[in-house]
Simulated scan of single mutants.
Amino acid sequence: MKAYYQNVEFWHLLTLPIYFIMAYLLVTMIAKRILLPDSKYLNVHFLAVLLFYLAIGLIDFKFKLIPFFPDTNLFTNILETGITPDNQSIGVKIGYKFLAIPIYNLSLKSIFNYFLFNVLFFQLGLIFLAGAFNRTYHLTDVWVQRIFLILAVFIPSVIVYSFTPLRESYFVLALGLFFYGMTSKNKLNIFLILGVVLAGILRIQLLLYFFIVIGIQMVVNMKLSKKAILGIVIVLIPFLFIALNYLAKSIIGISISPESLALFRNIQRMNYFESGVTYPEVDWANWLDLFLDFPGLFFQFLLAPFPVIIFIPFWTKLAYFADGLYLLLILSISLFYIKHWNQLGLWLLYIGLYVAMSAFFEFHLLGAVRHRLPATLLVTFLAAQCLAYYLPKFRWIFKY
């Protein structure tokens, strides 16, 4: 039996319906405030989602449906004892401890109620992301948000990490809050602040990504011509590099140079080498070396767990394999909309930037699948946009 199921009591199941109702009321209330008006559909959608996830959780308790991840014992122990080992990162010692433990206590120390909070945070993150996409492209039709919410329900990573005491639900909530806040008319708002704070205390690399996205959004908001924007970028490149180098040193403790990036990645790889699923060492003596390796690293991260640079028997890890297959499905659907991608240039830039930044640091096959989740969610909007464009004849299925 999994570590977090060993202390399950009968009364935990008795409190589950109460938490289920509270989660449903909260998620529908927020969805109706954030998303385009679609009250009847949202009521049905989130009731179905919560019932679907509840069924998965109960089946997992009996038949071990969700895999047991290497870090799960660590995070289970932190939840149950409140003690964080000294060798953990700031994201664990501060972010996880001061978020997860209060939520665990609020769950009455019931792992089922805690997992229900995980599902809630995932869904709230999706809601805020959909609201941000609606704002970015001034959508008035509910179909893109409907299809996105449906596709996101079945993303294997979302399902799997809803039922582990890991941090992925918090990351997705931070991502959603940040993008929703960034697309607000008020440039400084509670959503943006919460997203940045959550990223800062959970995963420092995500915070660096947020700062770059804010800079891109500031340039876009100037509403200049493409030539003018290109000229500004060229002029600002030295200053941007200095700023990013300072942030990298302050946030993750390394400078932006080929040698330091290679050293950081290779040291991390050595720590996990015995797992058997680390990527090869890199040898970057100059920017040309890094530039030549970049395409392989980019697609290696994006398509994980499928091999790009090195062959690893990926099919032995069923959950990761399923996530890779689902991403390939989403990407394949998105390609049918490729002639309209010029309309989604800003969103494509956000996706490419996240994958590019993460690819430089990712040294582990299974870690790549886990850390790719934000990019998977952003890519899902492309598939949703495509399906909403090409499948209007099936809309009668969802009429109420």
Rank of each mutant, 00 (worst) to 15 (best):
I256C: 06
T278D: 15
W347A: 00
T380M: 06
L353G: 04
A243L: 05
F210G: 07
S260E: 15
L247Y: 07
L175C: 03
L378T: 06
G195Y: 08
F394E: 08
T164G: 02
H364F: 11
N113D: 13
N7I: 03
P37E: 02
Y5H: 15
G131P: 06
L329V: 12
Q123V: 00
W315M: 04
L378N: 09
T15M: 13
F128R: 03
G195V: 07
I252E: 15
K339P: 01
F211N: 03
L377N: 04
L378Q: 06
A322N: 01
F63E: 04
Y96P: 14
F306L: 04
I78K: 14
K109N: 10
A100M: 12
I256H: 06
L26I: 08
V92I: 15
L51E: 07
F264Q: 15
D71L: 07
F301P: 10
F115N: 07
I333M: 02
P295W: 05
V355W: 03
S358A: 15
S250D: 14
H364I: 08
V196Q: 02
K64T: 11
V355I: 11
A55K: 04
Q123A: 03
F398H: 07
L327M: 11
I94L: 12
R372F: 09
S260V: 03
Y24W: 09
L230F: 13
L106E: 08
D86R: 15
A248T: 15
V282H: 00
G253N: 11
P280N: 12
G125A: 04
W315V: 05
T136G: 01
F98V: 08
P37V: 00
K97G: 13
I234W: 04
F363Q: 11
A23E: 03
R135C: 07
